[in-house]
């Protein structure tokens, strides 16, 4: 039936794209565990992803923590439940907002840059040049970025967690009049290892997704400047969507009872 043709065609295109992405990911990951590893490139990528993202992620975290404390106060004050604010701030930041917001910010900053850099290398034949110099592009370009993304984002998110909680602390103490000792005690007493670990696991997965999408779209870009632009957009959009989808499933894996 004619009406089924476009549905079937769309499904085939989807499965073909998913297959290509899976093959790309498997190839990239296999080079992450097979020597030689380019430690110099891994270190450079870790600095790019972690160190240079710290200002933007830190600012996002501190203002999110501040807003969270303020909004929680306006809601909880109606039920005389202001003492729950430290708990809400630390749980929200470590479990959800820290990893998700850091992931989205890094996707915008790093994922786009990776897609643009690798895409430009593709359209200017630099990737072909790597091949002719007996250097596997997956090992030289993709594996260092994947390794750096997976290892650096948890560190970045851990720092963002601390900054976010500090943001909530500042607003609670200096604007809402909380007792500093009580606030810190409530925060430390309430947070559990699982809260932090789940956030760091999410961060590692998001780091993988961001770098994978940046590399995949850059590596497969074609058609000159327009193609590189499209690759950049696709890398950011697909990484952001995947981060939000995976966030649900990882949350369910850790906390659904």
């Amino acid at each position: 039936m004619p009406i089924l043709q476009p549905i079937g065609r769309t499904l085939l295109i989807f499965f073909a794209a998913a297959g290509r992405l899976s093959m790309f990911a498997a190839n990239g990951l296999s080079h992450c565990v097979r020597p030689p590893l380019y430690f110099r490139l891994i270190a450079r990528q870790m600095i790019d992803i972690g160190y240079y993202s710290l200002p933007v992620v830190g600012l996002t975290a501190i203002f999110t923590g501040m807003v969270l404390a303020l909004q929680s106060y306006t809601g909880f004050a109606r039920f005389a439940a202001e003492s729950a604010i430290p708990n809400v701030v630390v749980i929200s930041i470590t479990r959800e907002l820290g990893p998700v917001l850091a992931g989205l910010m890094v996707a915008g900053r790093v994922g786009a840059a990776m897609a643009a850099e690798i895409g430009t290398m593709r359209v200017t034949e630099q990737i072909d040049a790597l091949d002719t110099l007996a250097t596997n592009p997956f090992k030289y370009l993709v594996a260092p970025r994947l390794i750096a993304g997976i290892t650096t984002l948890p560190i970045l998110v851990f720092i963002a967690d601390i900054i976010g909680v500090f943001g909530g602390y500042v607003v609670s103490i200096y604007k809402l009049g909380f007792n500093p000792t009580t606030y810190l005690k409530n925060t430390v007493d309430f947070v559990q290892t699982e809260d932090v670990v789940s956030g760091l696991v999410k961060a590692a997965v998001f780091g993988f997704l961001i770098t994978l999408m940046g590399c995949y779209h850059g590596y497969n870009s074609k058609g000159g400047a327009q193609g590189v632009g499209a690759a950049t957009t696709n890398a950011v959009v697909s990484a952001s969507i995947l981060i939000l989808c995976c966030n649900y499933f990882i949350t369910e894996m850790f906390f659904a009872r």
Partner: peptide
Amino acid sequence: KFGMLFQNAALFDSLPVWENVAFGLIQG
């Protein structure tokens, strides 16, 4: 066994000129 001169040279933007020339020696 191969060396190749690309149409637009295809030099690696992220590396200085000497490292471009030495790339095959260092990596390969």
